[in-house]
Computed example of a mutant assay.
Amino acid sequence: MTVAPFVVDIPQSDIDDLHRRIDMARWPERETVDDWSQGVPLAALQDFVGYWRNDYDWYACQKLLNDWGMFETEIDGVAIRFLHVRSPHAEARALILTHGWPGSILEFRRCIAPLTNPEEHGGTAADAFHVVIPCLPGYGFSGKPAVKGWSVEKIAQSWGELMRRLGYSRWFAQGGDWGSAVTTAIAVQQIEGCAGIHLNMPIARPLPEDMAGPAPDEAQALMKMQRYQDWDSGYSKEQSTRPQTVGYGLVDSPVGLAGWIYEKMWAWTDNEGRAEDALRRDDMIDNIMLYWLTSSGASSARLYWESFGSFGPKDIPLPVGASAFPKEIIPAPRKWFERHCPNLVHWGEPEKGGHFAAWEQPEAFVKELRVAFGFMK
């Protein structure tokens, strides 16, 4: 039950090994189209990986993580490593933020200061939070479960235990992607201490009558859902059925890992044609490094095997705030979502942003949290 400091300390030999593997990479031939319809274009990935090899500095990211302050504790045999940044306001509320795949704790990098020091970022002392940002089990610096059973429900229970160990008797939870599933599971199970949640990927499904006569926003959601199933969900089918198989390549090849993740940085962000329109290149590589340095290609994919079947609508008894960013990959109109939320206190529709809401639009994301949790005091 001990909570102790955790220092990120990657040896230079790991960086040298990464560079050697990139230098030895075998590249496929060029795609036969002039767009991304067959995946990441060869020229785009070679440019991205070339920057990673020659211009990127991991140790700037390592310093950032250590300056924020990382900690560790063991829960049911798995080491959970997490950021814990306390607000200077003693009366600040506690908030646990959960990332998804292929993201990491770094998704929230530009939200930490506005959440903990709101008066310096357009807010008031009443908007202050102590933030806890854990690496999911099998992701980043957290340990890798050695036995099956680490579902979103179990992770939700573990987050409750983590918050208890940190001394928070009343707290709030937020998440998108797998973070949305974990955060929903916290509310559904009514984990002790949780007073309300916010989701930036609200999950809901249409009823037959919705599909028979959809409103414009419902018709658009149905179209996006179908496109996702037809053209964008192959990664999830592989990871939910054969995570070990796909893991060999992701752990062994930095180019393979970069292609697997960079494509989603392009496909799932609100951009003008390039992933770099929405996310800084160094930030994207920082994120990929949390998968590469920890060899977590298989262990992160395994969460799909554990819980993909339970990634669906749930009735949520706690106060809920939700934000529907316009380029979310699986949209849920308010009409569908509020059926599951008798206590929906906030529904926001920011003007810009995609699947990685906190990462792409930190100011809008923080504003949404302030409004939503403002109704839960």
Score class of each variant (00 low, 15 high):
V3G: 05
V3H: 07
P5A: 04
W27V: 07
P28W: 03
D35H: 08
L42C: 02
D47H: 11
G50K: 00
Y51H: 15
W58N: 05
M70K: 03
P88D: 12
P102M: 02
F108Q: 01
C111T: 09
P118R: 01
H121T: 01
T124K: 13
A125E: 15
V131G: 02
F141H: 02
P145Q: 08
K148E: 12
S151L: 04
A156K: 02
S158H: 05
L162D: 04
R165K: 08
Q190S: 12
L199R: 05
M201V: 09
P202Y: 02
M211R: 13
P216N: 08
L222I: 15
K224S: 15
Q226T: 14
W231G: 01
G234R: 08
Y235V: 12
E238T: 13
Q239G: 09
T245Y: 13
L250G: 11
L250T: 15
D252G: 14
A258I: 06
M284F: 09
I285N: 07
I285D: 00
T294C: 12
W305L: 12
G309H: 11
G312V: 04
L318Y: 03
P319N: 04
I330Y: 00
W336K: 00
R339P: 11
W347C: 11
A357C: 14
V366H: 01
L369M: 14
R370G: 09
R370Q: 09
F373E: 02
F375S: 12
K377N: 14
